[in-house]
C-alpha cells in the first residue's frame, strides 16, 4: 500500500508542492519577515556605514552581497533547524511520516523553501544599497551570477536538511539556532574575510556551503573565476543530500521503534 502510494506521487512533485506550501506559510510569518527582510537590511546598513566611515567605500557591493547571504543563512538556520520539532509541536509529524510520500522528499521541499525565502534578503540588500547608498549593481559575469544564486540556495537548502535531521536530537533547537547564527557568518567569510580569524577557523568554513556560495556570487558579481566555487557548492549539496537522507532514515526508524515520534 505504502509503496504503491510512493509510485503515484513522484519525488519532484512532492518537493515542489511542499516547497510552495512552505514558501506561502513562511512568507506570512512575521518572524521570517524580520529574519529575511528587516534583519539583513539592518546588518547591511551597519556594514555600509562601517565600511564608509572606515574608508572602504569600494567594498559596499561586497557588503551588500554578504549581508544578503547572511539573511539566507538565518532563514535556513531558523527555518530548517526547528523544522521537525515544529511539525511535532503542531501535531503533524505523525501524519507526514504516515503519508504515502517519502518523508525525506517532504523535508527537502521545506528546507529548500527556507533557503529560497532568503532570496528576499539578497534582493532587499541590493535594492537598499542602490537606493540609499548609490551602490551600482554592475555584474562582471551576469550569466554566472544567475547560476550562482540558485546553486547557493540549493546548497543552503540541502544543508538545512542536515540541520533539520540533526537538531532533532536537541530538545531546544531554537537555542541552537540562536547560537549558530554569528559563528557561521564568521567562518564562511560572508562579511569578514576568514584570513582575519585564527587559522583553525578556515577549515570549518570549507565544509559549509555558504563559504563557496558567497565566493561564487562575489566572483560572478565583482570579477574573478566563480566556476570552482560553483562546483564546490554543487558538490557539497550532493554530499548534504546523502548525509541528510541517512540521518532522516535513522531518525525515522528510531522514532518508530521507540515510539517517540510525538514526544516533544
Amino acid at each position: 500500500m505504502r509503496s504503491q502510494g510512493r509510485a503515484e506521487v513522484p519525488a519532484h512533485r512532492v518537493i515542489l508542492a511542499n516547497w510552495l506550501f512552505s514558501m506561502k506559510s513562511l512568507t506570512k510569518s512575521s518572524f521570517f519577515v524580520l529574519v529575511t527582510v528587516l534583519q539583513p537590511l539592518i546588518f547591511s546598513t551597519i556594514a555600509f556605514f562601517m565600511f564608509k566611515s572606515g574608508g572602504r567605500p569600494g567594498s559596499l557591493l561586497y557588503a551588500a552581497l554578504g549581508a544578503g547571504l547572511m539573511g539566507i543563512w538565518s532563514s535556513t538556520l531558523f527555518g530548517s533547524g526547528g523544522l521537525i520539532q515544529w511539525e511535532r509541536f503542531q501535531g503533524t509529524l505523525e501524519l507526514l511520516i504516515a503519508s504515502p510520500s517519502q518523508f525525506m522528499w517532504i523535508l527537502v521541499g521545506s528546507t529548500l523553501a527556507t533557503s529560497t525565502l532568503g532570496l528576499y534578503s539578497v534582493a532587499g540588500t541590493l535594492l537598499w544599497g542602490a537606493v540609499a547608498f548609490d551602490i551600482p549593481l554592475e555584474l562582471a559575469h551576469p550569466a554566472l551570477f544567475v547560476l550562482a544564486l540558485p546553486a547557493t540556495v540549493i546548497g543552503l537548502g540541502t544543508l538545512g536538511l542536515v540541520l533539520a535531521s540533526t537538531f532533532v536530537l536537541y530538545r531546544h533547537a531554537n537555542a541552537l539556532s540562536n547560537l549558530l547564527e554569528y559563528p557561521v557568518w564568521l567562518v564562511t567569510g560572508l562579511l569578514v574575510p576568514v584570513s582575519l580569524l585564527p587559522g583553525w577557523a578556515a577549515p570549518l568554513g570549507w565544509i559549509l556551503s555558504p563559504t563557496w556560495g558567497i565566493k561564487a556570487i562575489r566572483y560572478s558579481a565583482l570579477g574573478g573565476n566563480p566556476v570552482p566555487a560553483l562546483l564546490a557548492t554543487v558538490g557539497l549539496s550532493v554530499a548534504y543530500l546523502v548525509i541528510g537522507t541517512r540521518f532522516i532514515a535513522y531518525f525515522e526508524r528510531r522514532a518508530r521503534e521507540d515510539a517517540t515520534l510525538a514526544l516533544t
Binding site: Y182, L186, L196
Partner: peptide
C-alpha cells in the same frame, strides 16, 4: 559570537 563578529568586522572596515 556577536562581540567576536563585530570586533572582526570593525578590524576589517
Amino acid at each position: 559570537f556577536q562581540i567576536l563578529f563585530f570586533a572582526n568586522l570593525g578590524k576589517y572596515s
